[in-house]
Write a protein that binds this DNA or RNA. Sequence first.
DNA 1: GCTCTGACGAAGT
DNA 2: AACTTCGCCAGAG
Length: 102
Amino acid sequence: MTAVTDPESGFARAVYLIVASIPAGRVCAYGRVAALAGYPRHARHVGKLMARLPAGSSLPWYRVVRADGRLPVGMRQQQLLVSEDVAITGERVSLRRYGWPD
DNA sequence: GCTCTGACGAAGT
DNA sequence: AACTTCGCCAGAG
């Protein structure tokens, strides 16, 4: 039984698929991704997996944000989102407008 | 087994 | 709306 935080685990692979399916111009919260993967209350582990992604990964990790709309990573993430026409107001994105899935 | 830590979340003040 | 406190689950030491 592989650990959930292991990139090879079923949880990790489910997370990757979900993140990969977030449409451009939309965002999804860590807890939301975890729940969709079938593991409620595992938001932190989603964060762990994102943090361990190799630089240059094709996964749109920057579309994953905190439940309150804050961006955990900073300017780099903000820039990538803005390039997809996601408005950032005062360090936060509106989940009401850009949250996915509806 | 215990404490600390973390790209988190929710509730209370 | 900003800040604090507490709950959460695994990994590391």
